[in-house]
């Protein structure tokens, strides 16, 4: 995908190509309840990523053979628009990559959602990547969390996700596409903010023995910021009305 000969200098004097510090997140903006027809939805702009997440259900799982008599099932679709990349026109048909990502996103929410409240039901999660610039699964999970809460699906926590990477000997937080293409490791994670449980962990590249602790510290630190943005996006519409009319 990326020719090593073209590798740009990713870090110069402690600054990255886009001017960020090593542990600095890209600008993130989350808006909840953006789609009328979905039970819950959110739109996240994370750097140049633009992702729409939506949740429907719980309703009867169909076709019937997909039902679980003890709990609700989650169906998840992560998909990328054909115009999302700055490069070539892509295909919006499910690729092996998007099917794997759909699966790991589903598993994050199978952990936190109170699925046993809804035997035989299904909850659908849609993550539509409209524009991509590296870290779409993390941004997608972060947005889907907000959409789940907006839809009123009971959850024991509101997970966030982000990725830490390694360039040479340096760990950097929240890689964009170019950094991702030339980095030595990419480690996306989804975490429960309340107890720091890790719900998604993937890695590719080279991670040194003993390095994971540092990686997780960086995830947790930046995660606090992301968590706050998620919470604010959910609370803001309610608080604004309360500010206007009272009730706080």
């Amino acid at each position: 995908m990326s020719n090593p000969a073209n590798k740009p200098e990713l870090i110069v004097n402690g600054k990255r190509l886009d001017g960020r510090g090593l542990d600095e997140l890209r600008p993130i903006k989350i808006t909840s309840s953006v789609l009328k027809n979905a039970a819950g939805s959110s739109f996240i702009e994370w750097g140049n990523n633009k992702i729409m997440a939506a949740v429907n259900g719980p309703r009867e799982a169909l076709p019937k053979h997909t039902q679980d008599p003890d709990k609700a099932v989650i169906k998840c679709r992560y998909s990328m628009s054909p115009f999302s990349s700055i490069e070539e026109h892509g295909s919006s048909r499910p690729s092996r990559r998007s099917q794997e990502i759909s699966k790991v996103i589903r598993e994050v929410f199978e952990n936190v959602a109170m699925l046993d409240y809804f035997p035989g039901g299904e909850i659908e999660i849609f993550v539509e990547v409209l524009q991509s610039d590296g870290g779409t699964r993390a941004a997608g999970i972060t947005a889907a969390s907000v959409a789940m809460a907006d839809a009123g699906i009971p959850m024991r926590d509101l997970p966030y996700a982000l990725s830490v990477g390694r360039v040479g000997d340096t760990l950097i937080t929240d890689m964009n596409k170019i950094e991702d293409n030339y980095s030595d490791a990419d480690i996306p994670m989804a975490v429960c903010p309340r107890n720091d449980e890790i719900l998604l962990l993937q890695m590719d590249g080279t991670l040194k023995r003993g390095e994971f602790g540092q990686v997780f510290e960086k995830i947790k630190n930046a995660g606090k910021v992301i968590s706050k943005l998620q919470t604010d996006a959910l609370k803001e519409p309610y608080i604004n009305i309360m500010k206007k009319y009272g009730g706080l």
């Binding site: 140049n48 115009f83 409209l130 524009q131």
Partner: peptide, 26 residues
């Protein structure tokens, strides 16, 4: 220009109908 990565784009809402168009050249 809703999707700057695309060569052209626009999002149109008529009431609550919401359609996004992206244009790429190849």
């Amino acid at each position: 220009d809703f999707i700057p990565h695309a060569e052209g784009s626009a999002k149109v809402k008529i009431g609550e109908t919401d359609v996004l168009v992206g244009v790429k050249l190849g």
